[in-house]
Amino acid sequence: MLIIYSHNHKQREVLSLFLTLMEVLYFQSVADDEVFLPNDEIWAYDLEQGSWKVFHMPGEVPPSMSGTCSCSLDGHMYIFGGCDDFGQTNQIYCVNLTDGKYTWRKITHQVGSAPSPRDKLSSWVYKGRIVYFGGYGHKLLTDVDSRNRSFIVDEASSVGDIFWGWNNEVHTFDPMHSSWSQPQTHGRAPAPRAAHASATIGRRGYICGGRVMETRTNDIHCLDLESWTWSEIVPASSAPVGRSWHTLTAVSDNGLFLFGGLSVDCKPMSDGWLFDVETKTWREVEHPFKTKPRLWHSACPGKDFDVIVFGGSCDYILLVDTGHCNDALVFQTQPYPLFRICVDYIAKSARNSDPLRHQLPLLPSKLLTAVQTRMCFYRPSKRPKSESP
C-alpha cells in the first residue's frame, strides 16, 4: 500500500512489503492563484489492487505548506520545514502510520536548537535518527557568517536584516529524545543547494544535483553517517545532465535510481538513470514513460525493486502552473521473480477469459489469493489513473 500525504516533493522508505511512504507537491493553481490542498487528508494507494482510500487526520494538524521534507521512521512519518503563507518554517510534525488513526502531533524539541527555517531540503534515516541536509531558507543578519561558506546569500531576495539563501548544513533529529544536534562534518562538503535529491544505502547518505545559486548541477556526493565525512563521487561514465526537483531512490545494496527533474535550461525531463555506487557508473534506463516528464514529484521503493513515482508537475511550475499530475508511474529496475510474473499474467488473462476464471480455484491457495487481489488492478472500472510496465 502506498501512503500519500499532500505536503511536499521528496521520497522515502519502505515500511513493510506493501506499505510505502510518499510526499507530493502541496499546491495547485486555480484561476492563477496558488491554492493549498487539504492538509488534514492522507491517501493510501493499494499497489496490488490499484485502489485509493482517503483518511481524514485529526490532532495538531500542520499548516498548509509546500516543499516540506518527509521521511518514515519506525512506522511514523515525520515532516520538517516547508513554506506556508508566511514563508519558510522549521517546525516538525509526526503521525503514526500503523495504528489506522492518522493523528497529527506537533513535536516540541527538548534539547538543542532547530535548524533555521527552510524548504526544499532532503533527509536520510539512520540508526533511529533523521539527518537533514541543505535547503533554501532565511537567517537573521546576526546568524550569517561571511567566513563560513555553509550559507550562500541570495542577493535578489534578501531584505533588511533577513537574508535568504542556500545552505549545506547537516542537522540530526532524535525522535526518541526530541533533540536536535549539528554534527561536525569532515572532508569537502557539497556546495550549498536546494531542490536536490537524496537516498540512503547502508551507512552512507547520497545527494545528487539540485540548484546551486543560479545553476543546476549533476554532481553526486556521499556522507558517511558514522564518521560524518563527506566525499564527492566522480563518475567513471557519462552522467545525466544537471537538474533540480528530481528524485533519487535506493533500489539495491549498490544501486540508485534517478528520475526526471528540471534541466539547466528549465526543461521538464523524463529520463531515468541507474547509478552503481561501487563502480561509480551511470546507465540510462529504458522505460515506458518517456512522454511523461515530471519535476517536484515524489518517489519511493516498492515491491520487487520497483520504484513508484507519484504526483509532481509536467511543466516548469514557476512559469506555467497547469501541469500538476495525479498518476502513479511504476518503474521496473530489475527482472521480476517468477511468482510475480505468474500472478500478473494469470490476473490479466483471467480478466478476459471466463474459462480461465473458472479454473482459478484449482490454483494453490497462496497463488490464488495473490491472483484474486491482483485481478482488481486489471479491472478497468476500478483502476485509478496509474500505469504499470
Rank of each mutant, 00 (worst) to 15 (best):
S231A: 14
H221Y: 15
E214K: 13
K267N: 12
C222D: 06
R193E: 04
A239M: 13
P288D: 02
W282R: 13
H196N: 15
W282N: 06
S181H: 11
W245I: 05
P240A: 09
A239P: 05
M213Q: 09
G242P: 02
K292G: 06
D276L: 11
Q182V: 11
G260F: 00
G187R: 02
L225I: 08
M213S: 08
H221P: 03
E232S: 07
T291L: 14
L258Y: 00
S179Y: 09
S198I: 04
R294S: 09
L225C: 08
G242D: 03
T279F: 05
T200W: 03
K292C: 12
W228D: 02
M176H: 14
F257D: 02
G272M: 03
R283S: 13
P240H: 04
V212R: 01
A197Q: 01
R216N: 08
L258P: 00
A195D: 07
A236S: 12
T247H: 01
A236D: 04
S270T: 11
A236Q: 10
E284T: 15
A195P: 03
I220H: 03
E226G: 06
V264H: 07
T185D: 02
S198P: 04
Q182Y: 05
Q184W: 01
L274M: 06
L295Q: 07
T247N: 06
R193F: 02
H177T: 15
C222F: 08
T291A: 13
S227G: 10
V264R: 14
E284D: 07
L295R: 08
R283L: 12
R283V: 15
H287P: 07
V251C: 05
P183I: 09
F259W: 06
W282K: 14
I207K: 00
H196K: 12
T279G: 06
A194M: 08
S263N: 08
T217Q: 04
L258K: 08
V241E: 10
P183M: 11
C222L: 09
T185M: 04
Q184H: 10
D219P: 07
R211I: 13
L274I: 14
A239I: 08
L262P: 00
L295V: 10
H246A: 09
T215E: 06
M176D: 15
